[in-house]
Write a protein that binds this DNA or RNA. Structure first.
Lengths: 65, 65
DNA sequence: TAAAAATGGAAAGTTTACTTGACATTTTTA
DNA sequence: TAAAAATGTCAAGTAAACTTTCCATTTTTA
């Protein structure tokens, strides 16, 4: 799964740490998502989508495997 | 988080086991999702949405806490 | 209405999403 | 260009999403 997190965060002009605080997760979690080390839980995906005013599908791009 | 899994599955007239096979998870996973014992991973949520030809947000209803 | 099929759900184990802490590298700013 | 800020990433621990196995209960069918 790919995602547009880094791109969207930079559009907003905020740091990983600020996004992490807004979403109530650690900075490392944001870094790990941006760099594809793992996928978000569905709860976190919902929080991210709400934060950016987008649908989950607009941020996270599902790919088989 | 609430979801419409049971409702959608019954509309299709299929058993938990059939849905489980289609999604490549165990029957217990389907049962656990339908009965709210836990939330799906985002990968499974994507598979479910694709199976029913819906958006994740049309199946899983995010609620705070 | 008895047998068969479907569902509910617990227990114990594995994997993955998360945490905190620490330190190295890269980027920005003074 | 040196210091400060931001990011990358590892390690070790916890939590939650899965698995398989098993058995009880409910629903369907013959």
């Amino acid at each position: 799964m790919k995602n547009r997190l880094e791109e969207l965060r930079k559009e907003k002009g905020i740091r990983q740490e600020e996004l992490a605080e807004a979403l109530e997760v650690s900075r490392q979690t944001i870094g790990s998502l941006e760099n594809g080390r793992y996928n978000p839980s569905i709860m976190l995906a919902f929080k991210i989508a709400r934060y950016f005013n987008l649908k989950i599908e607009d941020i996270f791009i599902y790919e088989e495997e």
